[in-house]
Amino acid sequence: MRALRAPKPLSPPPRLPAFFGYGRPVRTLLHAHRSAPALWGLAALALLAAALEALVRFGLVPKLVVAAPTETVVAIWRLAAEEGLLRALGATLLTAVAAVAAAAAAGLPAGYWLYKHPRFGLAYRNWLGALFAAPLVLVYPVVLVLFGRTYASTGFMGFVVGFVAIALYTREGFAAVSPTLVRVGRAFNLTPRQEFWKILLPAGAPMIFTGLRLGTIYALVNIIGVEYLINFGGLGFLVSETYDKFDTPGMYGAIVFVILVSGGMLWLLKRLQTWLRPA
């Protein structure tokens, strides 16, 4: 009978250079660390950018159609310095803030009303759902006739999509509150006002915030889309202008900037939600 051999000792996992990974094993950074998903995301993005850079540099993709990522980054600085990128950002953000504020002011009470009147809630839930899924940006000619080529048009287009998302999710958020929590409130003899502020609102907050986040992003996207379509306003107008001038790096730069702004707004709203309802 042969004696069992002791298994070979495993070689230690590779380590990142001390200046980059603080001496931690690569596996720890990419798997176990709390920010591992973000690191994976960034790594994939860097890989895609590198591949795109190579494709454009070697002429496999025409420069007129797609700008190299490095040129796109340089173009963002150029847009900021020479083409009024920050002014455009300000115009779009102000329009979006006004549209989302109006959508929240109307959508939150509308969602609550639909929850308090279940018959109407059930009747209109599907309508709102259908509107939420519909490409509402296509009604821009009607809005253009109503408000002309003004900020009112872009703002209104943002308001409409924001309102639908916020009203729909607010209603769903309240409807999803556990009936037991409401019964706890009744057992403690809460007034309707206390029941709303101390139970319904915090319990429904995660879904209501999802509605606010979606409403904000949909409003922003719609506003930029309409700005692009009607050649008016902020970032959408800038994308349209660079497109018309065949300034491909500038156009991609503006688009990347729009994505960064959307991501930033999402992150801010998420932080706000965590601050307001930590658990």
Partner: peptide, 20 residues
């Protein structure tokens, strides 16, 4: 009639407030 301050209720279902 209705809930009374002298009666306290503990429910079968999960009833703690998750945000507190």
């Amino acid at each position: 009639a209705g809930s009374h301050r002298d009666i306290g209720m503990v429910f079968q279902e999960e009833s703690t407030f998750p945000w507190r």
